[in-house]
Design a protein around this nucleic acid. Structure first.
Lengths: 164, 164
DNA sequence: TATTGTTATACTCTATAACTATA
DNA sequence: TATAGTTATAGAGTATAACAATA
């Protein structure tokens, strides 16, 4: 599929909801589904859920984090995080660490957790590069840029005009 | 956030996994979460789940569809669709219709379902336009184009080299 | 014999409210 | 009094396998 600059209006205002396939939430969902399909077997093979893997990645990327931060970054609600902490701690991938504010539940990767991450990251990178190569590195870069910008825009909207 | 053309390499190869926030699946998830946050209260207000709303939209866009097609388009597994059919049929929004192939469970919107869709579509369009205006119509157009193309690319990869 | 859905089952996540502990 | 998390609970989605019906 290829839409060139002038073969349709820039705004969708005269194309109500722009058709199911091209609607923004659906397009985001389906793009995610199609790419995750390639990562999923790899995550399954390590007996992790997708959400557990997001937590491990976030910790590997940023060091110890509290529940609130992980909840935002991983898009996981606090009650789910509580359970994920229990599961990952039982498996020895994370530990609870002391924090200045005793209300905060802060966790960090263990050595075992970091080893797991490093193994998985290597394969993830290979899968990502396969997609990037097929899609085009420049387009991928632009897509990531737009996605992050869209998120910032929507977040800003929600701050100034909370949804309903 | 603004990344210009030359302040980082085009390929992420030397930036393993490109950092949590900029990884493709996470960027897709968070962009979706940030935009869906604005649509969600509107869907809640009509006592639908997000998945039920996707089914209704797909039917409104394409006319009667069978379970397999809806499963693909809406990214919902068949067992969930079975339950969603029951729920939406009980609420009077859809009906089962006869199909040439009696194995296929095909459903269509009722008048009540179409009325619901039209009411909701009007508000959805308003919410979408608010985001589009804040983000920029041209960037939104480009983003949708890239998302659809990424999906096609990943689907093609999965056809030629099934994931694991 | 292959395909389409449904059922069964187990697990996980989503979502909200109520509660506990700390600040 | 406000904040951070946990617990409780209900509901829905995810995922796989087994089954029924149809082609």
């Amino acid at each position: 599929m290829r839409l060139d600059e002038d073969d349709r209006p820039a705004s969708g205002a005269d194309d109500p909801m722009r058709g199911y396939e091209a609607s923004l939430p659906i397009a985001l969902l389906r793009a995610r589904e199609a790419t995750m399909r390639r990562f999923k077997p790899h995550i399954d093979a390590h007996n992790l859920t997708v959400q557990q893997w997001r937590v491990i990645r976030a910790l590997a990327d940023s060091g110890p984090l509290d529940a609130r931060t992980l909840s935002e970054r991983c898009v996981i609600l606090p009650p789910s995080l509580t359970r994920i902490f229990r599961t990952l701690e039982a498996k020895g991938y994370i530990v609870t660490v002391a924090a200045p504010d005793a209300r905060r539940h802060t966790v960090a990767l263990t050595d075992k957790g970091r080893t797991l991450y490093e193994e998985m990251a290597a394969t993830s990178e290979r899968i990502y590069e396969e997609i990037e190569q097929a899609f085009g590195a420049e387009k991928m870069r632009r897509l990531l840029e737009l996605l992050i910008e869209l998120r910032d825009t929507a977040d800003a909207l929600s701050r100034e005009a909370p949804p309903e």
